[in-house]
Design a protein around this nucleic acid. Structure first.
Length: 882
RNA sequence: GGGCACAUAGCUCAGAGGUAGAGCACUACGUUGACAUCGUAGUGGUCGUAGGUUCGAUCCCUGCUGUGCCCACCA
């Protein structure tokens, strides 16, 4: 027997789903859920909890539906983030900055990884995520390394990957190139300094506006627009760069915008993307004035060398002012590029890097989605996907850090590049190239962008390039569930890489979930202190409650506002379910494997079977279309509003001997014991069906309660064999519900105590009144405290659907208020009826509306008319009572 | 500058071309042997705004306003 107190902690810890996750169904239809590998940098946050819960629901649902489900887990090495984190720790422990070696760092990170991935796996278990942990993978494990090298070499040989010397976004803190996607634009306050550039002969000057005066040392020209008459006279002449007196030409270039600044712009090709282009167009030299930390290098006057860029800026401005070369300073808002990981302002920098020709890889990836081979849910995210891929630029994949996939390229002493899957391959190539053995090759120091390997995750996890059954089965039979923020980073790259390596889409569906926010709708962040830890929530309310709540709130394409309060809704529901099973147990309900719903005879049982079947069919539709919110809601309503509020109350008189009279059974020629058994079986059956469909969302409690009821196996409910005729049962139960509600409502509105015993008369012809009273009399008595009689002296009449109920009263009651209510209702009904009539009188409506709608309108008018005349009759009789 | 999404009850959100829904909150009553993490009955909305399409629009289309987000540019 269940405890009175529902305590998730008492049983959730006892379940491990590893076994069932690794139990596969050999010949069934394959289905794979690709878990986005969490970074090894930290704990799981509430966003992970949402993402993983939703995919776990899918995985469990598919398993119940008989698919061969592979739910593949893993963790991501997360290059830059991890390295920054571990470096920080090492430095904090007293190691001096320059002294850290590659070997030492990697050793420390591997140590960190072992610990961290263990923590993550435990957190996944706690959340009940049913991955197959025996197949855990790591984006930097040996198999991944092989696959990454193979793809790298293949892309290189096909001309889709190359080494180039060009301008990239450079992070001076990390001291590495980063990709365009890792750049975040932020608006900051800045200044625009207007600086005099004097002509060579000193007779005149041009004023140039810049937000970066420290870069004047890298200036190689001043550009003006060819159409700008103001500066015509300067073109072709030379101006003097302040402070260093270098002479540079004034050139014409369309890039100079007469509207912006002063219309004359200084050109610094080494430190600005636009200037770089101008430089190329005009064959200007390139003067790089920064080192990799964005400190000024030997190209600048000695007093500036080694200075940081911001310090240099102040100094330059200072000197300019002293030399009266500063015309004015404007305050401006400017949007600057920051590194998303380091948080520092980035520098454009010309370096040697490896690039992927993303434009070519994007074409099949775009086509796959255009052709509908991959569907985004919700669909509108496809726009974002197309927008990005259609304007994609070369993808810089090399990083000047140590943690990651080392680039499989080797250099000869003359700089000759040998790209190979292994060092021995490279040596072979070198032998071939140089024609001699002893040429020493040096491997590229850099590593690959983390997303290079993440993009291969769908086939890396299936042991590609090894040909195997799982790879053939599961590749392209996957779903990916993830947030919109990594559509560019991850989803699109998986599609590009997948189309390239496998010539086929990796997955057919991409479910994009919303962002979890705090209760005010703010983004969660450590600095705001509004972060909700899913594991703390699990401790407080149980993992099932957290899962249920996340599912309940996840309507497609919408963000979720999370709070403890909302999780209570989930917890309360599970408590209710717990008590449902407790009630069933107390009344001897046990799941009976041989129970046949077709055999039940009591209309209450037929009715609840009907309701259960309908609801669960709807739940199935919801799961199929990934409407987790609908699924959660439907189960909630089915259990709480239908099973608890009605059915369980209906059958109490039957289950509880003392309240049972022979009448209840006799109407159906049933032995009391048989009827009781019927109800017990039905109740257990209904509860078990609901528990089964709840299982994907709340697996712990479902397992526990299912077991308590004696249904050891969780399988998806099947209703195909139910052939019952429900018509009469539904009509009767609907009337029953209406009677009970009406009596309760009348009692409340006249401020009668709910437990006051009253007599009622049922007048009507929709069902056989006598039979109805015989079957349901006791139930109505128990639930509404009224007894059916043949007549009453004084009564308050109530209009039911197809019947009138007279509620007997033994004293005069002020019915004025009630009369007013009824009048309001008449007015309401009339309004609705008139609206329907108005349409019916409209020829266009009759001709153009569908037949069903017209029929429905006719029916509505009829029903409303009847109702109105009944209410009017009631008003009349109430008035007579006064 | 280009694009996407959203706007429904006090709050959080579902919803459908044809009679507006839930949970929470609120009001009143209630501890009857599953459950006070509960029960019963209520209150509460011209579905952001202006047009258009339609027999009919809260739903479809367009403009507007507001909110959030993405991309691009900035001397």
């Amino acid at each position: 027997m269940l405890d009175k107190i529902f305590d998730a902690k008492s049983f959730e810890g006892n379940f491990s789903f590893d076994m069932e996750a690794s139990t596969r169904i050999p010949n069934a239809e394959p289905f794979m859920v690709l878990l986005p590998p969490p970074n090894i940098t930290g704990n799981l946050h509430i966003g992970h909890a949402l993402c993983f819960t939703l995919q776990d629901i899918v995985a469990r649902y598919k398993r119940l539906k008989g698919f061969d489900v592979l739910f593949q887990p893993g963790v991501d090495h997360a290059g830059i983030v991890t390295q920054l984190l571990v470096e920080k720790q090492i430095y904090a422990s007293g190691v001096e900055k320059g002294s850290l070696t590659r070997e030492k760092l990697l050793k420390e990170i591997w140590f960190w990884k072992e610990n961290s991935s263990g923590v993550i796996i435990n957190q996944l278990r706690k959340l009940g995520i049913s991955c197959d942990f025996s197949r855990q993978r790591f984006t930097l494990d040996e198999k991944s390394k092989k696959a990454v090298s193979k793809i790298f070499v293949s892309l290189y040989r096909n001309g889709l990957l190359y080494r180039g010397h060009r301008m990239v976004n450079w992070d001076p803190l990390i001291e590495s190139a980063i990709s365009d996607l890792e750049v975040v634009e932020r608006e900051v306050d800045g200044h625009l300094w207007h600086i005099k550039y004097e002509l060579e002969n000193g007779e005149d000057y041009i004023v140039v506006a810049t937000s970066r005066p420290e870069t004047i040392f890298g200036d190689v020209a001043v550009a003006v627009n060819p159409k700008d008459s103001r500066y015509k006279k300067f073109v072709g002449k030379k101006v003097r760069i302040p402070l260093i007196d270098r002479l540079v030409p004034v050139i014409e270039d369309k890039y100079a915008d007469p509207e912006k600044g002063t219309g004359a712009v200084k050109i610094t090709p080494a430190h600005d993307f636009n200037d770089y282009e101008v430089g190329l167009r005009n064959k200007l030299p390139i003067i790089d004035i920064f080192n990799e930390k964005a400190e000024l290098n030997k190209e600048v006057p000695e007093m500036f060398q080694g200075m940081g860029r911001f310090e240099a800026r102040n100094k330059v401005v200072d000197l300019l002012e002293k030399k009266e070369l500063l015309v004015k300073v404007e305050d401006i808002k400017q949007t600057l590029p920051f590194g998303d990981r380091s948080g520092v302002i980035l520098e454009p920098r010309i370096t040697h890097q490896w690039f992927v020709n993303a434009e070519k890889l994007a074409r099949p990836a775009i086509k796959a989605v255009k052709d509908g081979k991959i569907k985004f849910i919700p669909k509108h995210w496809e726009n974002l996907y197309f927008e990005w891929l259609e304007n994609i630029r070369p993808w810089c994949v090399s990083r000047q850090i140590w943690w990651g996939h080392r680039i499989p390229a080797w250099y000869g002493p003359d700089g000759q590049v040998f790209v190979a899957e292994s060092e021995s391959d490279a040596n072979k190539q070198a032998l071939n190239f140089y024609g001699k053995h002893d040429v020493k090759l040096v491997q590229d120091e850099d590593v690959l962008d983390t997303w290079f390997s993440s993009g291969m995750w769908p086939f890396i996890t299936l042991d590609w390039p090894e040909d195997n059954e799982d790879l053939r089965k599961f590749y392209s039979n996957m779903i990916v569930v993830t947030g919109f923020d990594i559509i560019f980073f991850w989803v699109s790259r998986m599609i590009m890489m997948g189309m390239y390596a496998m010539k086929e889409v990796p997955f057919k569906e991409v479910y994009i979930h919303g962002l979890v926010r705090d209760k005010h709708g703010n983004k969660m962040s450590k600095s705001k202190g509004n972060v909700i830890d899913p594991l703390i929530l699990c401790d407080k309310y149980g993992a099932d409650a957290v899962r249920y709540t996340l599912a309940y709130m996840s309507s497609p394409g919408r963000d979720l506002k999370m709070s403890d309060r909302i999780v209570e809704t989930g917890r309360n529901f599970l408590t209710k379910l717990w008590n449902v099973v407790r009630f069933a147990q107390m009344n001897g309900c046990v799941y009976n494997n041989g129970f046949d719903p077709n055999e039940v005879s009591h209309p209450l049982n037929k009715w609840i079977i009907f309701e259960t079947r309908n609801t669960i069919n709807a739940v199935e539709e919801a799961y199929k279309s990934y409407r987790f919110d609908d699924a959660a809601r439907l189960i909630y309503q089915g259990i709480w509003n239908t099973l608890c509020d009605w059915y369980m109350e209906f059958v109490k008189p039957i289950l509880q001997q003392s309240a049972l009279t022979d009448d209840t059974a006799e109407g159906y020629n049933l032995d009391q014991t048989l009827l009781k058994k019927d109800v017990r079986d039905t109740m257990a059956w209904v509860i078990v069906q609901f528990i089964r469909v709840l299982y994907p969302i709340a697996p712990f409690i479902s397992k526990k309660l299912s077991g308590e009821l004696g249904a050891t196996e969780v399988v998806w409910p099947e209703f195909d064999n139910i052939q019952l005729d429900f018509t009469d049962s539904i009509r009767q139960v609907e009337l029953l519900k209406e009677i009970i509600s009406s009596v309760r409502s009348i009692k409340q509105s006249f401020r009668m105590p709910a437990n006051e015993e009253l007599n009622v008369v049922l007048e009507g012809n929709s069902v056989e009144t006598a039979d109805f009273i015989e079957i349901y009399g006791k139930i109505v008595h128990k639930m509404a405290n009224v007894s059916f009689v043949d007549s009453v002296a004084m009564s308050i009449p109530v209009v039911l659907n197809g019947a009138i109920l007279r509620i007997g009263i033994d004293r005069k009651i002020d019915v004025q208020e009630k009369i007013a209510d009824f009048r309001k209702e008449v007015a309401n009904c009339s309004k609705m009826r008139d609206a329907a009539l108005f349409r019916l009188n409209n020829e266009d409506f009759r001709n153009k509306a569908t037949e069903d709608v017209v029929t429905e309108h006719n029916k509505r008018v009829e029903v409303l008319s009847e109702k109105i005349s009944k209410i009017e009759y009631i008003i009349h009789s109430l008035e007579a009572m006064q």
